[in-house]
């Protein structure tokens, strides 16, 4: 039986399988197009704004976050500025934010490992990482990260030593977090670009660490 066929009294937050792009538009796709066109007709929004925002969405990828992390690893003064005010430091890179969202950068150390989540919905440091992966928006991660972070990390293949504290930060629409992972050993001679190439999206969410270089 399809698990979605039974009525439930609990929210399932994982998306059903998406329909292929070349099929006839779904009811909700038609609804989105219709809302957008009506608002354009009423001159409340413009097609140019939508186009521009699509370009902005495409421009935001975890590569931006990786650049920030690599710079923080090589430049102690930048690192201090980043930890003091994440948004201001990212704006030095020309990264644009929306409304008055705060970005708080959480530094992993030998004693603390950080993990970010949004238990209520899907708040995420979009200006520096782009859009969140589906699992970040789904119930298992949102429900369990705040309760049993070590078990959650294990499911990502990450084992954090018992003497390291795990801190979970729950995001809101006004307060987003980014994890500054630990610089792996063996990278002393790496260029900033080579360092950035090691930093992945999942390491900046905190579900994995940046792997040491062999």
């Amino acid at each position: 039986m399809n698990p979605h066929d039974h009525p439930h009294d609990h929210p399932h937050d994982h998306a059903p399988i998406e329909s292929p792009a070349d099929a006839a538009p779904s009811y909700y796709e038609v609804m989105e197009t219709s809302i957008r066109e009506l608002l354009v007709e009423k001159q409340l929004i413009s097609p140019a704004e939508i186009r521009h925002q699509l370009e902005v969405l495409d421009s935001r990828t975890p590569a931006l976050g990786a650049k920030i992390v690599a710079r923080a690893w090589v430049d102690p003064e930048f690192r201090s500025r980043l930890l003091a005010d994440g948004r201001l430091a990212c704006e030095e890179f020309g990264i644009t934010f929306y409304d008055d969202t705060k970005l708080i950068v959480l530094e992993n150390t030998a004693k603390v490992h950080n993990l970010i989540v949004c238990t209520l919905c899907s708040c995420y440091p979009r200006p520096v990482l782009g859009l969140p992966p589906d699992w970040y928006k789904a119930k298992p991660y949102r429900a369990r990260a705040v309760k049993e972070p070590r078990a959650v990390l294990k499911e990502f293949g990450t084992e954090i030593p018992e003497d390291v504290e795990i801190r979970v930060s729950d995001s809101t629409s006004m307060m987003r977090y980014l994890v500054l992972p630990r610089r792996p050993e063996g990278t002393e001679n790496f260029t900033e670009e080579q360092l950035a190439a090691l930093v992945t999206r999942d390491a900046m969410i905190g579900v994995i660490t940046v792997n040491p270089v062999n």
Binding site: P11, H14, T119, D134, A138, K139, P140, R144
Partner: peptide, 16 residues
Amino acid sequence: PNDIGGLPADRIVQTD
């Protein structure tokens, strides 16, 4: 319904 932090839930499947 969306306030699910701390509730029991399934294993994480790394979907995207």
